[in-house]
Design a protein around this nucleic acid. Structure first.
Lengths: 219, 219
DNA sequence: CCTCCAACTTTTGTATACAAAACTCTTGTT
DNA sequence: AACAAGAGTTTTGTATACAAAAGTTGGAGG
C-alpha cells in the first residue's frame, strides 16, 4: 500500500471518528511526522481530503478540519434524499429482483443480529452497506454512484454523532427492508417513497440525539 | 498563481477542448516538461483531474484521459436532471424573485446577442452561466452546489461535441427564460418542469449533432 | 514456433533540500 | 496608547534526487 493511501486513510478515519475535531489545523510537518510519512504523500492525502470537503485550506494558514453544523446536516440530507431517491427508482427499473428479494429477507431477519453490542451493530452496518452497493450497481449510473460516494464520507461522520441504539437500528432495518421490497417489486415510485421515509426518520434520529457537540477550534 | 494551478487549468482545458483525446496517456515527465513545471505540482494537477473523473489511473501505466461514450452522456444527463431539477425547485422556494426576473428579461433579449459569431455565442454562455450561478446561490445548499460543479466540467466537454448553432442557442435562451420565470414566480414544480424540458432538448441536440467521435486510444 | 523467465528500461512513488510566501512579533512613530 | 512598518520565523510550494515497482524485450528451453 502506498504511503499516501495510508496517510489518507488514517486522516480520514481520524476525522470521521472525531479524533481530529473541526477547526484542527493539520500542519504538514506535524502530521507527516505523526503518521511516519514524508510531506509529499501527506500533501497528496490532504488534497484528497480537501476535494472531498472533510478539510479546507484556510488561505495560507494550512488546512483545517471542516465543521459540521446543524445547517450542514440539513443540506447533506437534502442532497442525500435527491440522490438516493433517484438511485432507488433507477434500481427498481433496472435491477434484478432476486438480488433485492434476498436482501429483503436478510433485512427482515436483521433484528436477530442487533443485540446492542458493537459486533451486532457492525454486522448490521455491513448488511446496510450491501444494500447500498446493490442499489448503486442496479442503478448502473457511474456518475450518480460517484456523487453518492462523495456524500457517504460525510454521512459516516454525522452518524458518529448519533447514538445508534438497538431500537433505532431495528427500525432502520425495517425501513431498509421496505426499500428492498419496493425495488424487488420493480416499483420505482414506491422505492422513492420508502427511501424518503427512511431518510426522514434517519435525519430525525440524528437531530434528536444530537447533543450540541463542540465544533470550536481545537487546542 | 501556483504552478499546480496552472498545470491543472492547462490540462483541464486541453481535455475539455478535445486537444488531449481520450486514451491519451499523460506521462508525468512528458507533461511537466511541456507545461514548464516540475513533477510535484504536475502530480497534484493529475490527482485533481482524476478525482473529477477527467482522467483515470490505468494501474501503473500512468494516467489516461477518460472516454465519453454515448452511454456516459446518458448517465451524465440523468444525474444532471436529478440535481438541476432539485436546485431549480429549491431556488423557486428560497430565491429572490427580483434576481430571476432580471435574468428572465435578459434571456428574452438574448436572441439579439446571438448572431452566429463566436462573440455572440460567448456572450450567451456568460448569461447562461449567470443563471446557473444564481440558481446555485438561491438553492443555498453547498453540497448540492458542489455536486453540480463536479458535473459541469464534464458537461463543457460534451458541449464541445455538439454544434451549438444560432438556432439551438436561441431556443435554449427561451428555455432558460422559462426556468427563470418559474423561479421568479416561486413555483417549484414549474421550475422542475422547465428544467426537465430544457435538459431533454439539450440532450436531444447533443445526440443528434453528435457525429460518432473518435474515442479510441491516441498515438 | 510458442512459452516462460530474467535482465533491462521506463515510469511512478517517496524523501529531502531549497525557495517563496504568509504570519507574527517587535520596534519606532504619531 | 494605538498603529504601521519591517525583520524574523514558521509554513507552504516547488524542484530534484533516489528508490521501488511495473512493463518490456530478448533469449533460452520445451
Amino acid at each position: 500500500m502506498r504511503a499516501s493511501d495510508r496517510a489518507y486513510a488514517a486522516l480520514r478515519d481520524d476525522i470521521t471518528e472525531w479524533r481530529l475535531l473541526p477547526g484542527t489545523v493539520l500542519g504538514e510537518v506535524e502530521q507527516s511526522q505523526r503518521l511516519g510519512v514524508s510531506r509529499t504523500p501527506l500533501r497528496e492525502a490532504l488534497g484528497r481530503l480537501t476535494a472531498e470537503g472533510l478539510t479546507t485550506t484556510a488561505g495560507g494558514r494550512g488546512v483545517v478540519v471542516t465543521a459540521v453544523s446543524l445547517e450542514d446536516i440539513d443540506e447533506l440530507f437534502e442532497l442525500r434524499e435527491t440522490l438516493e431517491r433517484r438511485a432507488a427508482a433507477l434500481a427498481a427499473e433496472r435491477g434484478d429482483s432476486a438480488v433485492f428479494l434476498q436482501l429483503q429477507k436478510e433485512l427482515l431477519e436483521a433484528p436477530a443480529l442487533i443485540d446492542g453490542t458493537d459486533t451486532g451493530r457492525h454486522a448490521y452496518y455491513e448488511l446496510a452497506g450491501r444494500l447500498d452497493a446493490a442499489i448503486d450497481a442496479a442503478a448502473s449510473n457511474s456518475y450518480l454512484a460517484q456523487a453518492i460516494r462523495g456524500l457517504r464520507v460525510h454521512l459516516v461522520r454525522v452518524r458518529r454523532l448519533a447514538a445508534d441504539d438497538a431500537r433505532r437500528l431495528t427500525a432502520a432495518a425495517a425501513e431498509h427492508a421496505a426499500i428492498a421490497e419496493a425495488i424487488a417489486g420493480r416499483n420505482p415510485r414506491l422505492a422513492e417513497a420508502a427511501t424518503t421515509l427512511h431518510l426522514h426518520r434517519s435525519l430525525s434520529h440524528v437531530k434528536n440525539t444530537h447533543t450540541p457537540h463542540d465544533k470550536e477550534h481545537h487546542g
